[in-house]
Nucleic acid binder design. Structure first.
Ligand SMILES: [Zn+2]
Length: 319
DNA sequence: CGCCTTTGACCAGCGC
DNA sequence: GCGCTGGTCAAAGGCG
């Protein structure tokens, strides 16, 4: 799917290497095993040269099958992902009164096996044989759509003075977090509309930010008993409010409706995944967020928002 | 040109 | 002090 790299690491070459490996393995193994029919297969493979080409939407295998008719050729899929192409050519019947003076042309089995890549659609294989050249086309499956991000858990929110030691998600397990609002923002998977999950993310994140925005100000309309406690918290001006979400997502960049500029990236200790630091792109808006993949369950992305936006959510951003 | 990432440097806090 | 960690800055470069 990604064709930017055409060097040694390109998917095509990987595919070819796989194919080669399979062939060589079989040859070696079978020499040891000394199984006659396998040796024959290996020979047949070696004697059946093939070209493999990758197209944007398909893989194409071109194989010389001299003197074979379509009916003599079998194209099948073994073990879910092994393309097996085989054929057999028999010597023509000798007629009475003729004899071979020379017998060089190849007879016997033709066969090749190819390990198909992940995105091969084994239900969409076609083959044509023309002029002794077999062309097998294996269509590609559409690239697997990254699963829709689902925020399944609102981790918590808490306020802290700017000068306080800044707690972090990685420093403290969930139970150490203030969880006053965790109930009202707990999401079930099936709450998510399939058609536009982004807007759902947006709505809820924005909603939460709205709470943040109204914090200490006039009239939060958010339901839930605990939000009232928050509103009564003292010294609102010097407080930074943080909100953290845990989202099941294969991509880190979740569209929450705002525009962000990344300003840092750090490795997270004991985690293979980095933490990224973003600042709201709006002029003079102090809001920051951190995004990192959950160390204990990499299927999740943890996003922590900090501060309140000084502006409205930009219209027409993202989709 | 404007806006974005990348990335090393820098800095503050903490434990030893 | 030293090393480690987390957070930020800013120069440089990418890209439309
Ligand atoms: Zn903002």
């Amino acid at each position: 799917m990604d064709f930017r790299f055409m060097g040694l690491d390109s998917p095509l070459l990987n595919t070819v290497h796989q194919i080669m490996d399979l062939t060589d393995d079989n040859v070696d193994k079978n020499l040891n095993a000394a199984s006659r029919t396998y040796v024959k297969d290996a020979k047949a493979m070696a004697l059946t040269p093939a070209d493999v080409k990758e197209y944007p939407k398909s893989y194409v295998f071109v194989i010389d099958m001299p003197g074979l008719k379509s009916g003599d050729i079998k194209v099948q899929v073994e073990d879910e992902n092994v393309l097996l192409i085989s054929g057999e050519r028999k010597r023509e019947e000798e007629k009475e009164g003729s004899k071979y003076l020379r017998m060089e042309r190849r007879v016997g089995k033709f066969m090749r096996k190819f390990v198909l890549p992940e995105n091969a659609d084994t239900d969409s294989i076609s083959a044509v044989c023309q002029d002794g050249v077999l062309t097998v086309t294996v269509h590609k499956l559409p690239p697997p759509e990254p699963k829709k991000p689902k925020t399944i858990e609102f981790i918590g929110r808490y306020h802290t003075r700017m000068t306080d030691k800044t707690p972090t998600i990685s420093d403290s397990p969930d139970e150490d977090w203030s969880v006053e609002l965790s109930e009202y923002l707990k999401f079930d998977d099936d709450q998510w509309p399939d058609d536009d999950p982004k807007s759902f993310v947006s709505d809820h994140v924005l909603n939460t930010n709205e709470v943040v925005g109204n914090f200490g100000g006039s009239g939060s309309q958010v339901e839930g008993s605990s939000s009232r406690e928050l509103i009564n918290a003292p010294a609102p001006e010097v407080e930074e409010l943080r909100v953290a979400f845990k989202t099941k997502s294969e991509v880190e960049i979740l569209n929450d409706g705002y525009r962000w500029r990344k300003y840092g990236k750090k490795t997270v200790k004991n985690s293979p995944h980095p933490r990224n630091y973003y600042r709201c792109s709006a002029d003079r808006c102090p809001v920051k967020k951190r995004v990192e993949r959950d160390r204990v369950d990499p299927r999740y992305v943890i996003t922590t928002y900090e501060g309140k936006h000084t502006h409205l959510v930009p219209n027409n951003f993202g989709n």
